[in-house]
Design a protein around this nucleic acid. Structure first.
Length: 406
DNA sequence: CGTCCACAGGAATGACGGGCGG
DNA sequence: CCGCCCGTCATTCCTGTGGACG
């Protein structure tokens, strides 16, 4: 082991311990819930007044919360619930709050497992039927005589994958419960979602609706400034750098999470470079780094066929001005499969894979009609080529195909 | 103004591995 | 250990459709 490497490692460790710019970088992480949520006072007050009846033992209305990503929906909800919970302890009321992110737990079964955990019931990951799991959960909840407030975050994922049956059952759960009650807070960033909801669910879930508008650049800057004050050392970051982060994020529909990420990663880059200040150039580097990280993370965990489809897209978009279609992709994908001697999947499946790639944001696919020449998707890469190549080359099967056209 | 392309995308079904209850 | 049920990937069969072409 060369001492140069050891020196380098040593330097990295020391730098991390004795940060050049940060006091507390965790303040900039998305999971951090600040003590104050500026520009969301109205929503906090409204959500608070909706949930307040639970302190008197009655079931609060179900709530539907809309707002684009990074508009503070989750933060506000968690914040209000936290306060509500401590108030309930003070008053001696049994309120169970449960937060489920249905992007991670996007099946009926897993949601029930999560809800059950909140009332202290451990259910097996698998092995029992959904109906049985639900029954057990209700039994335990009812025996506690409490009010449960269930937050279903990013509820569109749940509905897309598993339908709205669970919502229906939860909203009607009072029929099956005698001592306890369940109130639901549904959070979504998909405004069209409600349309394809069972009307019965729609009316009961949407008893109250709460809208979170995006932050504008000024508000974002304010938020960033407040956080930066706690996160960074005095003088480590200039107003102009914060303004830039705010402006870049405001361009992306006022996403506070992105803005904070940008600030944090810019700080980390500054630190790596041994700089004592976060500079404009660090922000631009951060912008790129975030994109690369996200893409390679997504790509490296994809199944083989998805990678092959992506490779097909990569090759095709290189020639024909960055665009291709489903048919072309499928033909090319099949030839790639035969080259490495594996069986190809059907076109139907590739169609789904394309949708998946589109959803993750790796590609952009728009369905268009070419009239007499049919209806298809126009596909283009949504991330830089070299990022895709780099991520794909990590796969042993795919990398054989990659060498040669690199 | 109807036809018909080239797919989109829904529904039903199955194979398979993981993991639990009994 | 078996049987059951889960989630995931995949297939088969299918109906739906925007708009250029004739």
């Amino acid at each position: 082991m060369s001492s140069a490497i050891n020196d380098l490692l040593d330097k990295i460790f020391v730098n991390t311990l004795k940060s050049t710019v940060f006091i507390d970088r965790d303040v900039l992480r998305p999971e951090y819930i600040p003590d104050e949520l500026p520009h969301r006072e109205e929503q906090i007050a409204k959500l608070g007044s909706i949930l307040a009846p639970s302190l008197k033992g009655s079931k609060p209305s179900n709530v539907f919360i809309y707002g684009l990503t990074g508009t503070g929906k989750t933060a506000v909800t968690k914040y209000v619930l936290k306060r509500l919970h401590s108030k309930s302890l003070e008053l001696g009321v049994d309120i169970v709050t449960c937060y489920v992110n249905t992007r991670q737990d996007d099946t009926t079964y897993r949601v029930i497992v999560k809800l059950a955990e909140c009332v202290g019931l451990r259910l097996p990951f698998t092995g029992i039927s959904t109906a049985e799991a639900y029954r057990r959960f209700l039994k335990v909840l009812d025996s506690r005589s409490s009010i449960m407030i269930a937050v279903l975050d990013e509820i569109d994922f749940l509905i897309k994958r598993s339908g709205d049956e669970i919502l229906y059952r939860l909203t009607r759960s009072s029929d099956e419960l005698t001592n306890s009650k369940i109130a639901i807070i549904g959070i979504t960033n998909d405004l069209k979602l409600v349309e394809d909801l069972d009307p019965r669910v729609r009316s009961s879930l949407g008893e109250v609706e709460l809208v979170f508008p995006p932050y504008n650049a000024v508000q974002l800057e304010d938020i960033l400034t407040r956080r930066a004050k706690i996160a960074f050392k005095p003088g480590a970051i200039d107003k102009s750098v914060i303004s830039l982060c705010a402006a870049l994020a405001a361009r992306e529909h006022g996403d506070a999470r992105r803005a904070l990420d940008l600030l944090r990663v810019a700080g980390e880059i500054a630190e790596r470079e041994g700089s004592e200040k976060v500079l404009i150039e660090h922000v631009y580097k951060a912008l790129r780094e975030i994109e690369v990280d996200r893409a390679s993370e997504v790509i490296s965990t994809m199944p083989l066929h998805s990678k092959l489809v992506l490779l097909a897209i990569l090759n095709l978009t290189k020639t024909s001005n960055g665009k291709t279609t489903t048919g072309e992709v499928y033909t090319h994908y099949k030839s790639l499969c035969s080259k490495i001697g594996i069986e190809s999947v059907t076109q139907r499946r590739v169609s789904d894979i394309l949708s998946e790639l589109d959803m993750t944001g790796i590609i952009t696919a728009r369905v268009i009609s070419r009239g007499r020449y049919g209806k298809t998707r126009v596909i283009s890469l949504a991330v830089p080529e070299d990022v895709v190549v780099k991520a794909l080359s990590e796969d042993p099967y795919v990398s054989q195909l990659l060498s040669g056209n690199r």
